[in-house]
């Protein structure tokens, strides 16, 4: 038999133990009650809770040998933290009379349920927050390349990025899109015939059909053109010829690196009046 010296509570004498665990002669014992979901055995209908036949936890075995069967039950079931906390109100290891395992099981189950609920709520909350962050981030930096099919498309996309970064007009146009949360889409898939790009006001998106352009610079030129439309749309301007003139002028500045002269502006106006005759000035 194992005894621990210096225990604050007097362990029960071997003579007082009726479990048969401490006796030398083997005795027929009733079948052990099955542990609950918490790993704790319920109190038997009659008599004290007998020690287990075998303890995996040596410390639990030690306490069971001293007569603290219920406390050993907690340790064996893995409720080590709770067991330690339970020693505080009793200023020592609680005896079997002081410890109500049924009550403990109820409280522990409720606490576990509360913990699980809190974790689920916290996870849901964090997911919602992270989803919002992703949404905000995607709105603050929105460039999409669609239907990239081969290495050549990737090279073209890189050239487009370099061109936007290099050119001050393209950079500024692109920054305007970032400021107002407009998504810039470079579509590498099969384009509608003859269409270079489009601006969608409600969707807050511009689309550049890259396959209808001969170079990255041309694609950026279309992006610059569409940024003018979407920016004016964003400010509430109506569709008119001036809108087109502004867009072509912005393109001109991008291409030539300077503002159009008087004659060049007149040429732009003449072209817009000819092609967009149905719009008002």
């Amino acid at each position: 038999m194992t005894t621990v010296q210096g225990s604050r509570r007097s362990p029960p004498t071997p003579a007082a133990c009726t479990s048969g665990h401490h006796g030398q002669s083997p005795r027929v014992r009733p079948a052990e009650p099955e542990p609950s979901a918490l790993g704790l055995r319920p109190d038997p209908a009659e008599g004290p809770l007998p020690p287990r036949d075998h303890y995996e936890n040596l410390i639990a075995q030690n306490y069971a040998d001293q007569g603290y069967v219920k406390f050993a039950e907690l340790l064996e079931a893995g409720h080590v933290c709770a067991a330690c906390h339970l020693t505080r109100p009793t200023n020592g290891v609680p005896t079997d009379q002081q410890l109500d395992l049924e009550r403990y099981a109820t409280v522990a189950s409720l606490a576990r349920a509360l913990r699980v609920t809190t974790e689920i709520l916290a996870t849901g909350y964090m997911s919602a927050v992270s989803a919002m962050e992703v949404r905000i981030a995607s709105q603050s930096f929105r460039v999409t390349a669609r239907n990239l099919s081969d290495g050549l498309d990737e090279i073209t996309l890189r050239r487009i990025g370099e061109e936007i970064a290099r050119d001050p007009v393209a950079s500024r146009a692109y920054r305007q899109m970032q400021d107002q949360g407009t998504e810039v889409v470079f579509e590498f898939g099969r384009p509608p015939p003859g269409l270079d790009g489009e601006a969608l006001r409600f969707e807050n998106r511009i689309i550049v059909y890259v396959q209808n352009h001969r170079s990255a610079m041309e694609a950026v030129r279309t992006m610059v053109h569409e940024t003018s439309h979407i920016h004016r749309m964003y400010r509430g301007n109506i569709v008119n010829q001036l809108d087109e003139v502004r867009a072509f002028s912005r393109e001109f500045v991008y291409e030539r690196g300077r503002r159009p002269a008087l004659q060049e502006r007149e040429a732009i106006w003449a072209r817009v009046r000819r092609d967009y005759a149905d719009l008002g000035e």
Binding site: G194, L195, D196, G197, E198, A199, L200, R201, F202, N212, H213, E218, T222, H225, E226, H229, M233, V239, A247, F248, E251
Partner: peptide, 8 residues
């Protein structure tokens, strides 16, 4: 409000 650009 959609604008299409056929310029090129």
């Amino acid at each position: 409000g959609i604008r299409y650009n056929y310029k090129s």
